[in-house]
Design a protein around this nucleic acid. Sequence first.
RNA 1: GCGCUCUUAGCUCAGCUGGAUAGAGCAAUGCCCUUCUAAGGCAUAGGCCAAUGGUUCGAAUCCAUUAGGGCGUACCA
Length: 531
Amino acid sequence: MKQRVSALLREKFGREVVLEKPKDRAFGHFSTPIAFSLAKELRKSPMVIAEDLASSFNESEIFSSVESVKGYLNFRLSENFLSEYGDWALQNQSEFGKQDKKSKILLEFVSANPTGPLHIGHARGAVYGDTLYRLAKHLGYDITAEYYVNDAGNQIDLLGLSIALYARENILNESVEYPESYYRGEYLEGLANGALEKFGKEIFNDESRYKELALWAKDGVMDLVVASLADTNIHFDTFVNESSLYSDWDRVMQKMADGIYKKEEKIWIASEAKGDDNDRVVVREDGRPTYLAGDIVYHNQKFERGYDHYINIWGADHHGYIPRVNAAVEYLGYNSKKLETLLSQMVSLLKDGEPYKMSKRAGNVILMSDIVEEIGSDALRFIFASKKSDTALEFDLSEFKKQDSSNPIFYIQYAHARIQTILSKSNFSKEDIMASSLKGLNENADSLLFDALLLPEIIEDAFSSRQVQKLPDYLKSLAASLHKFYYDCRIIGTDDEAKLLKLLFVVALSLKTGLSLLGIEAKDRMAKEEE
RNA sequence: GCGCUCUUAGCUCAGCUGGAUAGAGCAAUGCCCUUCUAAGGCAUAGGCCAAUGGUUCGAAUCCAUUAGGGCGUACCA
């Protein structure tokens, strides 16, 4: 819709025109402050220019009126245009808001270490990534969702140790002394019992076998991770194991030979020359690779797989890491501009107004699966998707548990359910409704139709700006329009019943499509709570 | 210290590449169910958009400085 308008204006004025949404629908559907920017070149007042421009529009197919108000140019879309678009949307429901972008995108997100179940901090990045993924798919991108499994490095050793300690204390009833760092949590119980069955109890006291124990256990942990993601409607296309990458190590080092050097028996990457604060160690004196090494091989592999664009979603605490990886990408001979790293800010928790610190050691971690159980996947997704991903967020755990009207997902679900109820109470058949016309609606209805038809440009905007929260924002305002309309305007039994129902079809389509992009299923009925 | 980032209503947050009177939800107060589910609608109240200066016809939005918060500044991941 907006594209049509903006293309038309571009042609007419010979320049890009800024289109915005007027504060008040009474001003029209779209407006532009173009007269202000023309004022200087034309040496005339914005008001006069706006007047001239407004009168230069004739009756057109798209606009029913073009008016100038205080220097703004306000456009009102014609009934024909809106109703035709609405008809088209209803006849091509699965195509609504879709586009035909072709480029191939690799989206990496979550990538939490396989050493424990996902906690609430991971959930934000997970929801953000999956929403981007759904938006991209809808827009026609060939996008792949990938999870990078860090199954090499110290944290894996720690996992083996943690399971052994747990088993020795709780299964073998030994008294154990805990080292400074180890993992703790209920999930260890299942792993320890599984290990007992698989390896026998000897393994828990044989330090040389902890690695073996860990490598077995990480698959179990990944099963937990995948299951809790699935509970939230999040799915990955591919998983890449860090451990599988190192066979490529020599070749990759060769490839970026001019970016690395040896000093003090270690291998360094000259990342400072590419904008990092310092050069970084890639391989330690004893030959063990650092974390960065894994990422270098991984990113090389990503680029060799040949995508047009790469998106990484990282926790904000990794932001200092971006320059190093970019440097490596450059040294590998690729354009680091193709790699876009988005940050998902921390979620800080409050409990009864007090900061609540999670720590794996203390074992007081709030798991993603716990929250899903408490408030449901829909509410969790909606809350996280509604917040700009790059600002820190405070959550009160006690608020989190509320499942009532303070949760906006109910507001939107209710709007959709209301429509279904009305439809079920009408005597008109679907065919009757579809055959009726969206023309000749009253002003409120007309405005609602316009709101519902805005979805496609919201999708496009939300994805291209990576500002996923625009979609829930829009759905909230569309639901508000619907609720108000419902209150103001009786539908069943009126002369306009069929066409109003058709309008509701469009609104429901928009709500349903929007919700599905958030990974939420639209409800046809709201189960009312019993008092 | 340096780098990144944030500061908008009592609380949690929107506010698009500068544009019309600063927005929503929750919390507060008051109205609206013999009418398609009141998980709804309407209204009231609540703001020096952290501070100062600059750019401009025009700034919450851009720039600079200051104050305060978060994160990073590992041969941990």
